[in-house]
Design a protein around this nucleic acid. Structure first.
Length: 266
DNA sequence: CCTTAGTCCTGCATGC
DNA sequence: TGCATGCAGGACTAAG
């Protein structure tokens, strides 16, 4: 499940290969993977060159010389690869062929991923909150959050902060020693600063490790991510906490599994 | 307005 | 072994 570090890794690996490249062929093989009409989208894309590749939240964004933008959200199982394996062919949802002869394949077993085209001079992804890597962004976003939603749910809300998913929310809360059910309004200022710092650190370390490969995620060029070996709580139900040996517990919070240490996180 | 539940989709794990 | 059931997950939509 690609989150900010995985998407950032993908963007960094795509940049040197695809920046400046001109599209010569675009095919959508699954109706639902594209928002809009496939033939119309392909017509708009062909002959355009990619001027810039960047990330916004968990979205991969391509700026085109026509002024349009193309965004890809990988959701659960989406992947972008240059060299698909034999099994990948079955789940091929879109093909982008470039003048430089290289081809980018969008593979997505569960069909949750979404490709979308954005017209010129229209704000891209206007609902997205600030990027958690920006200094102090998390602390500021959490200040003034009232309501009864637990901090875990708030961290997953892309309108509040964009890019954090289930894995890094749990890892950050453990690092900051905050119980996932804590209400943001009840967090002391010092704890908010601590959480801000831990989120940046956890995300940056995961980027350095090229992301967390648990099942589907693979970087486009590197063989695998390595951050799965650094996880402290995610997926470790009943296993001893690395800090205090208390068994890690799992709770359902707004429908998502949340892993935490009941001793370290009060 | 706020919050929760259902939806999408498919492979895998579990239970009988 | 075979079949049915249910679980996982991000973002969107519908409903309370």
């Amino acid at each position: 499940m690609p989150e900010l570090p995985e998407v950032e890794t993908i963007v960094r690996e795509l940049q040197p290969v695809l920046t400046g490249q001109r599209l010569v062929g675009v095919e959508f093989h699954n109706q639902g993977s594209l928002v809009g009409d496939p033939l119309e989208a392909a017509r708009k894309l062909v002959d355009c060159s990619i001027t810039r590749i960047f990330r916004q939240g968990k979205y991969i964004c391509f700026a085109l010389d026509s002024g349009w933008h193309l965004t890809i959200h990988l959701r659960m199982s989406g992947r972008l690869v240059f060299y698909p394996g034999e099994k990948d062919r079955k789940y091929l949802r879109a093909t982008f062929t470039f003048a430089g002869r290289c081809t980018l394949y969008f593979i997505d077993m569960r069909k949750f991923g979404k490709i979308k085209l954005w017209p010129p001079q229209q704000p891209l992804l206007p609902e997205l909150g600030p990027d958690p890597l920006k200094p102090d962004a998390v602390r500021q976003a959490l200040t003034g959050i009232k309501g009864k939603r637990p901090i875990k749910s708030v961290l997953l809300d892309q309108r509040v902060i964009s890019g954090i998913g289930n894995i890094y929310a749990d890892e950050s809360l453990f690092a900051a020693r905050i119980h996932p059910l804590t209400l943001p309004a009840g967090l002391p200022a010092a704890k908010r600063r601590r959480l801000d710092r831990e989120i940046s650190g956890i995300l940056q370390a995961a980027i350095d490790n090229k992301g967390t490969t648990l099942s589907d995620y693979r970087p486009p060029l590197s063989a695998t991510g390595e951050n799965q070996y650094s996880l402290k709580v995610y997926g470790r139900e009943d296993l001893p906490c690395f800090s205090c040996a208390t068994p890690i517990r799992r709770l359902k919070i707004s429908g998502r599994s949340s892993y935490f240490c009941p001793t370290c996180q009060k």
